[in-house]
Design a binder for these strands. Structure first.
Ligand SMILES: [Mn+2]
Ligand SMILES: [Mn+2]
Ligand SMILES: [Zn+2]
Ligand SMILES: [Zn+2]
Lengths: 138, 138
DNA sequence: TGCCTTATGCAACGGAAGTGCATTATTTGC
DNA sequence: GCAAATAATGCACTTCCGTTGCATAAGGCA
């Protein structure tokens, strides 16, 4: 897929084989994925390379880290034109305690929070835990 | 302080020496504390005992765990009449990236969140990172 | 006092993030 | 095209924190 290479090139990431594969994997998944998820999927590859690949994607701005409270860092591709900015791009994350999956609820942008005097907000993390729509319908 | 023993007794926690000391420590601190914080303060005591003490306090409902995104679990005493319920007791937590302290902003209760169809919320975690009032005034 | 429940102390484990460094691949200058 | 420089990869190892198992000590109750 030339599309993949374009995405990487556009974000100044050199398109190595592994990076293309990981990007493809992220694109296909509709849920947030962990390093272990990637590691299990590409079981011939090295964990450190995958670790650094995911972090490169975050550093270059094509994906964002998600702390869903499980203690396992998750990753998901950013939306088009996302800059991970506090007032425009940050969104709710939902973690299902049944299927253990975490999803971006990008439609739910985090509202501005009015802190007490003197506090300055630089980042916000909003995570809801519960039952996801799939698990709920069963 | 008989007060300490009353708090424990009222919550069905046997008032051992260590528990009284830890409770005192929590009461004095205005910020959320980690297991390591307690461990450093009582440096003659055992880490596991402190760990279980903190978790007993949570289980019995006198304090709550805080996941501030640093990867280090914090603890803070609950307010009066708190039952850690999603719609009435959950509040904002603020983590200062300068002094590395985490505080409960109990005045800021987490508003009800309207999820997409099918999702059921059981718990919410809202953490703001930035500069706290103390660090900001310097 | 003696029994039973609970708390404590010590040791060890496990998962996950992160780092150092040698090796391999790729780009760049000539 | 070739050599040097730069970047990516693979392997080993570390660190940090949370957690558990188990033996011992302490405390409550009959
Ligand atoms: Mn997201
Ligand atoms: Mn709190
Ligand atoms: Zn689910
Ligand atoms: Zn501060």
């Amino acid at each position: 897929m030339q599309n993949l290479e374009k995405i990487l090139a556009h974000n100044h990431i050199k398109p190595t084989a592994m990076r293309l594969l990981v990007l493809q994997f992220l694109l296909n998944k509709k849920v947030a994925i962990s390093l272990t998820d990637v590691e299990n999927y590409f079981d011939q590859s090295d964990r450190t390379t995958l670790y650094r690949t995911l972090n490169t994607f975050v550093a270059k701005g094509i994906s964002h880290k998600i702390d869903d409270g499980t203690g396992i860092t998750k990753y998901a591709l950013c939306e088009e034109n996302c800059h991970c900015e506090i007032n425009t791009d940050l969104h709710l994350h939902f973690h299902c305690t049944n299927c253990n999956e975490t999803v971006c609820i990008t439609d739910y942008k985090i509202p501005q929070i009015h802190l007490p005097k003197g506090y300055i907000a630089e980042n916000v993390n909003l995570v809801v835990k519960g039952i996801c729509d799939k698990c709920n319908c069963k």
